[in-house]
Design a protein around this nucleic acid. Structure first.
Length: 509
RNA sequence: GCCGCGUUCGUCUAAGGGCUAGGACGCCUCCCUUUCACGGAGGUAAUACGGGUUCGAAUCCCGUACGCGGUACCA
């Protein structure tokens, strides 16, 4: 039977999208694509106080860069919209009221001060975080302790209130996690979570259940930090829509930093990015560096993220997005957290730069050069250069140091590496080399090398002793690809010009 | 504190009762190359601890330790 899958990811627009968040989206995306299902993105903006302007656009831009952009058809209009929870506000209250009517939830009128007072009173060394649970709800101001008349009156006059779930006592709630297998909880130790806030917005707990039901979500992968609240969600499904209709869940392991959970701070502290793209918080002005700006190609970023906690069982490590879609399976996702290793991330980028076609790198490399005030118009020449140096570049900005000399003749040449062994015979050699180069018709690295060696033999100088001077003349230092390949790309005119200029500069004894 | 989830080289991982625990990153050595890389060949290094079950345990069970997460009108 064909599987009809609809997965969802609900990024919060409250500040960037860290590695773990992108990976969650990625796994949801891979699973949906593999099974021919829809990949729905829901925007969780029910906490207006934490809303950060621009964050939503940032999330969509990030996913676009990664190649994970949801289909327009599943994101705008369509049968399951709207996709922004603030726009769905009205639909939640109804379900919360239904729960109250059925006796599974209750109104609570406690003020923030009253809640504080309760927690302060109950706090002890053994119980550092007192919960609003079955042991205290009878002492609080809610529809379980107040008379029906009082409750009705309070509701009538719009007294601020929330709706809390009434956790049953002594029940074991369990469900099967696609990664961890059966997980169970004792309801006695779970608190009476708020479902509907005083401002009428749902909390995540109510929203996720209602939305998953309304959007007919079949599978939902989310971070491990949600595991402890899973029993609340199971119960809500049971009370509202029936547990059979509940989506298949998978709780993804966390991505860890050098010391504990990966944080924005780690990035700054250890010098690696933690976001896909640069993110500047408009409220604090704080900038978090992105992989894109650091010089990563999206293929490498996605690849690196995918295998941080998943593998296909073979020894393959480099996967394209298409391959990942094909090979991904949620069962092979690890249950333990993975520490992020920037060195390995760089290795993936190196691999991808090597694998990518020259044309695919063109615009990125052009951007790098522009950052060094170098505008390149000749695509054919640029392509040759990229083809010659891409194997030596780990990050995109490396293209500059590995190829700037193809576009700028060296102004000053450091001759120190060859000075000690420099002599008139060598100078003669290069002068006759220039003469021969002028008349050579086949300007290819192999031909140039053959000619070079032949002339060296005639001059009875070891070719090896002449290659370094040649390199210095062409690029100005001890770096770059094989010297004759440089000459080939540079072309006859430029090569000869550079050699002549350099020969004039060599200090003679 | 309580609840939950985890634990194989430094790191990411393979091995789902049975060969000398395999691969990759990093690091080291050598080869190639009279630049530097790429590439090639080697090397280094792990089943947290203690009990069971079994002819046989990294693998199954129990306990301990450690790590992480949760314990908000945040997601």
């Amino acid at each position: 039977m064909e599987k009809k899958v609809r997965v969802r990811f609900a990024p919060s627009p409250t500040g960037g999208l860290h590695l773990g968040g992108v990976r969650t989206v990625l796994y949801n995306y891979l699973f949906a694509k593999k099974h021919g299902g829809d990949f729905i993105l829901r925007i969780e903006d029910t906490d207006q106080s934490r809303f950060v302007p621009g964050a939503e656009d940032y999330i969509f831009e990030t996913l676009k860069w990664c190649g994970l952009h949801p289909d327009e058809s599943t994101q705008h209009g369509g049968a399951y919209g709207p996709y922004r929870q603030s726009e769905r506000k009205e639909s939640y209250r109804k379900y919360a009221e239904e729960l109250v009517a059925k006796g599974y939830a209750y109104y609570a009128f406690d003020t923030a001060e009253e809640l504080d007072a309760m927690r302060n009173k109950l706090r002890t060394a053994e119980n550092p975080s007192p919960q609003y649970d079955r042991t205290v709800r009878q002492q609080m101001r809610n529809s379980l302790t107040l008379s029906k008349e009082e409750v009705d009156a309070l509701l009538q006059q719009n007294a601020p209130h929330v709706i809390r779930i009434k956790m049953p006592e002594g029940e074991t709630v369990s469900f099967t996690d696609a990664i961890r297998g059966e997980v169970s909880f004792d309801t006695s130790v779970v608190d009476d979570k708020v479902l509907l806030k005083a401002d009428g917005m749902p909390t995540y707990h109510l929203a996720v259940v209602v939305d998953d039901y309304l959007m007919q979500i079949t599978h939902a992968f989310r971070g491990e930090e949600w595991l402890p609240s899973a029993p609340v969600h199971v119960l809500l499904w049971r009370y509202l829509f029936g547990e059979e209709a509940m989506p298949q869940w998978a709780h993804l392991p966390l991505i860890l930093g050098p010391s504990g959970k990966l944080s924005k701070r780690d990035g700054a502290k250890y010098g690696f990015p933690v976001f896909a793209m640069n993110w500047k918080d408009p409220k604090t002005g704080e900038l978090t560096e992105g992989f894109r700006e650091r010089g990563f190609v999206p293929e490498a970023f996605v690849n690196m993220l995918a295998v941080l906690g998943w593998n296909d069982g073979t020894e393959q490590e480099v996967f394209s997005l298409e391959e990942l879609v094909q090979k991904f399976s949620i069962e092979r996702v690890h249950s333990s957290g993975a520490k992020f290793d920037f060195e390995k991330a760089k290795w993936f980028n190196h691999e991808w730069i090597k694998r990518k076609e020259v044309e695919e790198l063109r615009s990125e490399v052009r951007t790098i050069f522009q950052q060094h005030d170098l505008e390149i118009s000749d695509d054919v020449y640029l392509d040759k250069v990229i083809g010659l140096v891409k194997d030596r570049c780990t990050l995109l900005p490396d293209f500059w140091e590995h190829s700037f000399f193809f576009f700028k003749a060296p102004k000053q040449i450091d001759f120190t590496p060859i000075l000690a062994k420099w002599n008139p015979a060598k100078k003669d050699f290069f002068q006759s080399l220039i003469k021969s180069l002028r008349s050579i018709s086949d300007w290819k690295a192999t031909s140039l090398e053959a000619l070079f060696k032949q002339l060296a033999e005639t001059a009875t100088i070891k070719p090896g002793e002449l290659q370094l001077p040649m390199r210095l003349m062409l690029v100005g230092g001890k770096f770059g690809p094989p010297v004759f390949e440089i000459a080939e790309v540079l072309g006859k005119e430029e090569t000869i010009t550079r050699m002549e200029n350099a020969l004039e500069q060599v200090p003679s004894h």
